[in-house]
């Protein structure tokens, strides 16, 4: 498989405090890779650098063989909140990245419209975000991210705001969707179960400053068994991750 995105030796400090140090991660085509770590370990800092919003002190970001360090607009980035703009209808929210790239409003809407069905958003086109449930807003944010991407997406805790039942439903839906659309995803979570359920590979980010301390490949091929999260293999992965994160990593 070929690598679409790689971060090489990324280091970033704020003042005298080094947040992340010498981070190396890569993402292959069609892969779902997770960055797992406790709160405050520098996951979002790394994503801000990968997306081009911030510059690293050292290191570079390479997309499809070209360096894009500090250049926003190349990779789509879904920030922690769903950030549906309350004053725009869902269709306008979702097609916003296309408009930003210079497409006419009507044209952008026409391009976005066919995806509503697939993202479970049919009928919401002319509604405002306040009219949608949390899960639907999240799916709309995902559609917006997908439309702004050229195949690579960064998702910062995409499902963390949802309750457990909505979350497992959206996990299933997400894996199903990933079978159908062309997207390579790097996502952040602090939920160990979510990391194992969704990812092909998991990077463990740990320590102060944050470093990649382990890389775990989930052997279970996608599409996965419905009861994968109840199997012994799943528990083995979970044990491994818990010991990786260490007893001090849960904020106790």
């Amino acid at each position: 498989m070929d690598t679409v995105l790689s971060a090489e030796h990324i280091t970033r400090s704020y003042g005298s405090r080094t947040i992340i140090s010498d981070i190396n991660v890569h993402l292959d085509r069609h892969e779902i890779v997770c960055l797992l770590g406790v709160s405050g370990v520098g996951k979002t800092t790394l994503f801000h650098i990968l997306s081009g919003l911030n510059m690293p002190d050292e290191g570079k970001v390479v997309l499809n063989g070209r360096e894009i360090t500090g250049q926003p607009g190349k990779i789509s980035y879904m920030l922690q909140k769903d950030l549906m703009l309350p004053y725009k209808r869902i269709i306008d929210n979702v097609s916003l990245p296309l408009q930003i790239r210079g497409m006419k409003k009507k044209q952008a809407e026409e391009k976005a419209a066919p995806y509503f069905e697939q993202f479970g958003l049919a009928g919401t086109e002319d509604q405002y975000p306040a009219q949608l449930s949390g899960g639907m807003r999240q799916r709309a944010a995902l559609l917006r991210t997908y439309l702004s991407s050229e195949g690579v997406a960064l998702l910062d805790e995409p499902f963390s705001a949802l309750d457990t039942i909505t979350k497992s439903a959206i996990h299933e839906w997400y894996l199903d969707l990933m079978q159908k659309i062309e997207l390579s995803t790097l996502f952040i979570t602090h939920d160990i179960d979510e990391a194992i359920i969704l990812s092909d590979r998991i990077y463990i980010l740990c320590g102060k400053p944050g470093r990649i301390t382990d890389e775990i490949v989930i052997a279970e091929k996608r599409p996965r068994r419905k009861d994968f999260s109840l199997t012994g293999e799943f528990l083995e992965y979970k044990k491994k991750i818990i010991s990786d994160l260490g007893p001090g990593s849960f904020g106790i």
Partner: peptide
């Protein structure tokens, strides 16, 4: 104006 919303637009290359 929401700083995160501005970041979102910046990440789109706005």
């Amino acid at each position: 104006a929401d700083k995160d919303a501005i970041d979102l637009l910046r990440s789109m290359g706005a």
